[in-house]
């Protein structure tokens, strides 16, 4: 069966995200002063073959832990659905 995984990878909250900080400044310059915090991460979608959702989730988790995210600086979350 083919599955689709939607993966979000975000910098950890305790780590300064200079990119988010710069974008916050841009939003303030745009006049949206109400924005109090911006953090920028990555969204990854991938398709994979697996016998069931459990196997697909376990594969995606391994992919996140071993390559897609660096757990020293990032957190990840994902959803897996049938393609």
């Amino acid at each position: 069966m083919e599955f689709v995984a939607d993966i979000n990878i975000m910098p950890m909250k305790e780590i300064l995200d200079p990119q988010g900080k710069a974008v916050k400044l841009g939003l303030h310059n745009l006049g949206i002063d109400q924005v109090s915090d911006v953090r920028i991460g990555k969204h990854i979608t991938l398709r994979l073959e697996a016998t069931d959702a459990v196997e697909a989730e376990s594969k995606v988790k391994t992919a996140c832990e071993k390559l897609l995210a660096n757990l020293i600086m990032e957190e990840f979350s994902f959803e897996v659905r049938i393609a």
Binding site: I15, L16, P18, Q19, A22, N70, I72, M73
Partner: peptide, 10 residues
């Protein structure tokens, strides 16, 4: 150990 993050001033 550790990681190299984006420079603080981007």
């Amino acid at each position: 150990p550790g990681v190299l993050l984006r420079n603080i001033e981007q």
